[in-house]
Amino acid sequence: MSTPTPRVRMPATAKAGEVIEVKTLISHEMETGQRRDGAGQIVPRKIIKKFTATFNGKEIFSADWASAVSANPYQAFFVKVPETGTFEFSWLDDDGSVYKATQKVTVS
């Protein structure tokens, strides 16, 4: 498997206090732990179990995902932009890996 690539779509500028939609996607097979391989062995579970969004270091939104979340998990939600700052998004894998993406938003 290639390294999961996170993608984030959101505006780079906003008015103070504006509500914007954040759309995120990460390439990941989200192996459920239910499937069997060609030899009849159960393929061990490997999913992203937690998604977290912070703004200037403060947690603003998070999601706990179970194996029922589709492959290449998509997560969209809304945030308020009080001031110029940086959004950081992180995805925690079952194996302990953390994948990250950041997006700076400038308040004009």
Partner: peptide, 16 residues
Amino acid sequence: ASFNFTPMTPRAEAQI
């Protein structure tokens, strides 16, 4: 799945 909101998320709304 479970979604954790805060007052910084102005709408208790999400898509997966």
